[in-house]
Amino acid sequence: MNEIRIQIDGKEVRVGEGMTVLEGAQSAGITIPKLCHHDKLVPFGGCRLCIVEVGNGVSAKLVVSCVYPVEENLVVRTRSEKIDRIRKTILELLLAHAPNSPELQVLAREYGADKDRFEKEASFCIHCGLCVRYCNEVKKLNAVGFVDRGIRKEIAFIPGIAARECKNCMECFPLCPTSYLQAAFVLIEALAFSTTSSGTASTE
């Protein structure tokens, strides 16, 4: 792989061509916060927490580093007042859904996010898609997927597949930033597994 030079936070680093800014920063040992990124998965750009500023002066713009490819002489800033303010708001919005997630709380402390800024809407899922994508891309089992859209979007297990495969896998459980996944699994197990095994499966 060809190497190209980019600048991250004033430091010259050499990164592989075709990498994303986030991967480039990781390879140079620079941390960018993220919730929906996983090394084994195709970049998703869902949580927007890895937002960084690229370019200089008037041409500077905000990009999501997990889906932005590196280019020669790219100048990247991973922390600034503006970026921190955006990350703080993103965290506050996510905390309205999952106020007690340890992963979110650690980030909230770092960025000074107030978990009570927005009215609580405890859906617990922050739509990072890690479970859905891991099951699809790595395990190729497709036991869990997204249903519906917009404010009603949620993860849902397919009872027929989940009853057969999940007990032996559960690899997506530790990926979940809020632990909602485990709760959703226990719920579907209680509601739909027994009917699935007797042959009257339901996706409801």
Binding site: C135, N136, N142, V144, G145, F146, A156, I158, I161, T203
Partner: peptide, 8 residues
């Protein structure tokens, strides 16, 4: 197509 995708 996985059922999860069709449902989505």
């Amino acid at each position: 197509v996985p059922l999860s995708r069709t449902m989505h």
